[in-house]
Simulated assay, not measured.
Amino acid sequence: MAAPRTLWMALVLLGALGVLQTPARAQASVQPNFRQDQFLGRWFTAGLASNASWFREKKAALSMCSAVVAPAPPGEGDGVLNVTTTFLRRDQCETRSLLLRPAGPPGCYSYTSLYWGSTQDVWVEETDYGEYALLYTVGTGDRGFHMATLYSRTQTPRAAVREKFTTFAEAKGFAEEDVVFPPRTDKCLEGHQ
């Protein structure tokens, strides 16, 4: 009698783990009729929320980054985007680039994290292209890592856009204290309004 009970408990635990790992994917969607050409250009990371331990440890020290989204160089494939991010780290401006490869319907991408060595899936869930974009990222190998990001075309998004991001992040399961609006820094964003 102990063996069936142990098997049942194991199945319940596996089921619970599956449920805990899949909500991020189940909750993800993309902007209807996503227009990649309108998504290109300069954005500022005006809002972030994440369950990653590094984020929780360093969120008070984060500052706004700029990101330039452009078509990838020829030979990378159709629909591939090159994202070049500039940010302040240790009082120096750093720039990193990554390739977002189409991974489903338009607005859904994946990339390999050079730092973590894992695949990240990114969905552009909502955007008006001219003012804001709401992105959702899930790490497929990072023990349940997920992140919500507010891209803004300006360094000072309107209060309504910030509220929209807070609501979006909370719908993704983040608590209010997980939501950060990094302050801008003139050092790495100079000349990029």
Rank of each mutant, 00 (worst) to 15 (best):
A169M: 01
A148G: 15
A60E: 11
E125F: 01
S29L: 09
A169Q: 02
C188A: 07
A169S: 05
H146E: 06
K58Q: 14
F174E: 07
G104A: 03
E94A: 09
T112I: 13
T84W: 01
N33I: 01
W123C: 06
F165H: 06
F174V: 05
A26I: 05
L99S: 10
E163P: 00
R101A: 11
D186P: 02
P157S: 03
R162D: 01
T112R: 14
C188M: 03
K172Q: 14
L100V: 03
L189A: 00
M64S: 03
L40R: 07
A133Y: 02
Q27H: 13
A60N: 12
Q92C: 01
M147H: 05
V138G: 02
L62I: 06
Q193M: 08
V30N: 08
D128P: 11
D178E: 13
W54C: 04
R153L: 06
K164Y: 01
Q31D: 05
V83N: 12
L98T: 13
L150D: 05
L88V: 06
G117D: 09
G75Y: 11
K58A: 15
E176D: 13
V19I: 09
T112V: 14
A28Q: 14
M9K: 09
P23L: 10
T137Y: 03
T149L: 11
Y115S: 11
R158K: 14
A160M: 07
G144E: 00
L189R: 00
A175R: 15
M64C: 10
A160G: 01
F174R: 10
Q155D: 04
N33M: 11
G79I: 11
S53T: 14
S152Y: 02
V80K: 04
D37I: 03
V179P: 11
T6K: 09
R35D: 15
G191N: 00
E177H: 13
S97G: 15
W123V: 06
N33P: 04
R162G: 12
K164F: 01
F165T: 08
E76K: 13
N82G: 08
K59Y: 12
D37T: 12
T22G: 08
G191T: 00
R184K: 13
G47I: 02
P105E: 14
L88M: 11
S97P: 00
G75S: 12
T149C: 10
R101G: 04
L7A: 10
L7N: 02
S152V: 06
A159G: 05
T149V: 13
L17S: 13
E131F: 05
P32I: 03
M1F: 06
C108L: 14
S66I: 00
E57D: 15
T185L: 00
P23D: 06
D142I: 02
F87N: 03
M1L: 07
G139S: 02
A72I: 12
E125R: 00
G79R: 08
A16V: 09
S66A: 06
P183D: 04
Q155G: 12
P71E: 14
V161A: 07
Y115A: 14
K172D: 07
T45L: 15
T166I: 09
K187D: 08
G130W: 04
K59N: 13
Q92H: 11
C65T: 13
G117N: 08
S110E: 14
F87P: 00
P4E: 03
Y111H: 14
F181M: 07
R56P: 04
Q193S: 11
F55T: 02
S110A: 13
V161F: 05
A72Q: 08
S29K: 12
P105M: 05
T22S: 14
G144S: 01
A24H: 09
L114Q: 13
